[in-house]
Design a binder for these strands. Structure first.
Lengths: 193, 193, 193, 193
DNA sequence: CATGAATGAGAGTTCATTCAT
DNA sequence: CATGAATGAACTCTCATTCAT
C-alpha cells in the first residue's frame, strides 16, 4: 500500500484503459458502433465484460471517451502548426500534418464521421467538441485574414469542408483515393496565387 | 373484382408503400439505421409491425429500397444537366441542380452518408450503386477534359469530394451553413478563370 | 339457383376441398405440420388464404380432417379383406393390402406417425380414431383366435406393432428398406407353421 | 480465484446444464420440438430466456445436445451386451437391456422418434448418428450370422423394426401396452428354435 | 364466392448491464 | 481486482386468423 505501488497500479490502469480503447477503436471502425458488443471489445482487450464497467460507465461513455480522446489530438494539429499569426509556411505545415495524421488514423475517422453524422448517437459531444473545433477554426481563419482573403470565415469553412470531403472519400476507398495528389492540389491552390 | 377496384387497391398499396418509406426516411435520418427499429417505423407510418413485411422483405431490403429509390434521382441530376460535351452553362446548371436538390433531401443525405461510411451495413449497394456513380463521374470528367484541365479525373474527384464535404457539413448544421455562398464560390472558381 | 347448379357448386366444393387436402398432405409430409403455413397450402392449392377458412375452421381442424379422411381408408383395409371368420387366404390378402397401401401413402404415413407420437398436437383424435382402430384390431384378433393362438390379443398387438415398426422404417428410408422381403417374411412366419 | 471456487462454479454450470436439459426433455416429449418454445424451457428450468443461450448456442443445438447425449447411451446398450461373437445369453441380455432402458427413457423415445420421422428437423444428425447405429446394427447381425440365419442383415432389420414398433406403441400407451409379455415373446421366438 | 391487406401475439435471439463470488 | 452467470428488454421476423372489399 505504499504510494509507489499505488502509482504503479494507477499506471497499470491507464495502460489497460488505453488497451481497451485501442480494441474498441478497431472494432467500432470495422463493424460500427451498434454492431460491436461490449463482449467483443472485452474479449479483444483480453479482459472480462464486467471489468469494462470499472473503466467506463457505459457503452456510450466508452464511445465518448474514445472519440474525445482522439479528437483533441486531431484539433491540436492546427494549434501545433499555426501560430497566432500564421504564415504560408505554417499553413503548409498544417495541411501536411493533417494529411499525415489522417493516414495514421483511418479507424478513428470512420468512427468520427459516424458520430458527426448521426447526432442522436452522441449529441452530448457538441459542447466539448465545439469548443476545440472553434479554436482550430479561428486559427485557420486568422491565416486567411492575414492573407487578405475577402471572407476569411467562409474560406475557412470552405477549406475544412473540402478536407472533410477528401478524407471521407479517402476512408471509403483508402487504396484508390489519390490523397497525396489532393494535398499538392490544395497547397498549389492556396500558396501559388 | 372489377378492374377499377383492383387498380384502386393497387394505388392504395403504392401510396402506403410511399408512406412507409417516408416514415423510414425520417427515422433513419434522425437515429441511424441500426437505432431505428421496425416497430418505430411501423408506428410512425400508422401500421402494424407485421404489415411492414408485406411491403418489404426485411429491414435491410427496406433500407435498400429507400436508398436506391432516391439515389437514382441523385445521380441522374448530372445526366440531366450535362450533355455528352458539356459546356460552362451546363456545368453551372449541374452545380445549381445539385445544391437545390440537397436542400430538399437533407434526410436522405444523412442516410446516404451513413450507408456509404458504415462498413458492414450495405456493401451490397456497391454494384448497382457504383455503376450509376461511375456514369455521373465520367460526365463531369468530360467537362474538365473539354476545358483542358491537366488531369480531368483528378479534378472530378476533387470537385465531388468538395461537394461531399460541403453537403456533409450542411446536414450537420443546416441552418448555420452558408450553402448559397459556397455554391457561388464554386461557380466563381470554375467559371471565372 | 336451380337445384342442378346448386349441386354443381357442391360438387365443385368437394373437388376443391380434395385439392386443398392433397396440397396439405404433400406439404405437411415434406415440412412437418408446424413448418407448413396456411399460406403455403393455399398457394399450392391455387387459392387464397382467406378461402382456406371457408373450407376448414382452423389449421388444426385442417390437419384433423386430413388425417381422419385417410385413416378411415387405412383401417378399412382390414375390414375389406378380413371376413368375420378370417382364414389364411384372407389374412394374406390383408397383409398384401396393407403393404401395397403403404407404398402409395408414404406422405400420409409421415404425418400419421407424427400425430400419433405427439399427442398434444391432436389429442382429440383419440375418440374417433380409437373406434376405427378397435374394430380393425378385433378383426385380426379373430383370425388368431381361429388359428388357435394362445393369446390372440397379444399376437394382434405384436403384429400391428411389427407393421408399425416396418412401415416407420420404410418411410425413413423408402429406397433402402426391403419392404417386399419383409412382407414375405411375415407371411412365411404366420402361414407356414 | 481459488481452484476450489472455480471448480465449484464449473460444477454448478454442469448441474444447471443438466437441469435445463431435463426441462427440455420433458417439454419436447410432451409438445414436440416445434411447439416447445425456448421461453417454456427456460421457465420450466427456472431461468431467464437469455441464459439459455449461454448454455446452448441455439434451439437446434439444444435439441442436438439433448438427443446426442442420450442416443450414445442407447446405442451403447448393444455394444455393452454383445461381444464380437455374441451367443444366446448375450442376445438375451441385449434384449433385456433394451426393454429395461426404454421404460426409463420414455420421454427421450418420444423425442427420438419425432426427430427420426420429422423430415427437416435434424438431418444433420444423420452422420454422427448413423455411425453409432451402424455399429450396433452390425453387432446384432453378427449374432444372426453365428446362429446361421439365412439372411442375417434382413433379420437384423426385421428385429430392429419390430423393436421400434413395439417401443413406439409403448410410448403411445405406456400403461396399457404389454411390454414385458412382448419381451418374452421375442426371446421365445429367437431362443427356442 | 374470393381476395389479400391487416393485425397481434409470439417466436428465436442478442446484448448492455449488474452483481454474487 | 476480476469474473462471467444472470437478467430483461428489445430486436427482427413469422403466421394463424379476420374482414372490408
Amino acid at each position: 500500500m505504499s504510494p509507489r505501488s499505488t502509482s504503479q497500479i494507477k499506471a497499470l490502469k491507464v495502460e489497460k484503459r488505453a488497451l481497451i480503447m485501442k480494441a474498441g477503436l478497431q472494432l467500432f471502425a470495422k463493424n460500427g458502433y451498434q454492431a460491436t458488443s461490449i463482449a467483443m471489445i472485452a474479449s479483444e482487450a483480453g479482459i472480462s465484460k464486467g471489468l469494462m464497467y470499472t473503466y467506463f460507465k457505459s457503452k456510450e461513455e466508452f464511445l465518448r471517451a474514445l472519440v474525445l480522446n482522439t479528437i483533441e489530438e486531431m484539433f491540436s494539429l492546427v494549434e501545433n502548426t499555426l501560430s497566432e499569426s500564421p504564415d504560408d509556411k505554417e499553413f503548409e505545415s498544417m495541411i501536411n500534418a493533417n494529411f499525415k495524421w489522417i493516414e495514421k488514423n483511418e479507424d478513428f475517422l470512420r468512427i468520427y464521421f459516424g458520430v458527426v453524422l448521426q447526432p442522436n448517437i452522441l449529441r452530448i459531444f457538441e459542447t466539448e467538441f465545439g469548443e476545440k473545433a472553434q479554436e482550430a477554426f479561428l486559427r485557420i481563419s486568422k491565416y486567411f485574414e492575414i492573407r487578405n482573403f475577402e471572407n476569411p470565415l467562409l474560406e475557412t469553412r470552405y477549406l475544412t469542408s473540402l478536407l472533410d470531403g477528401l478524407f471521407m472519400n479517402y476512408i471509403v476507398d483508402p487504396d484508390g483515393f489519390p490523397l497525396q495528389e489532393m494535398k499538392k492540389k490544395i497547397l498549389n491552390q492556396y500558396l501559388n496565387n
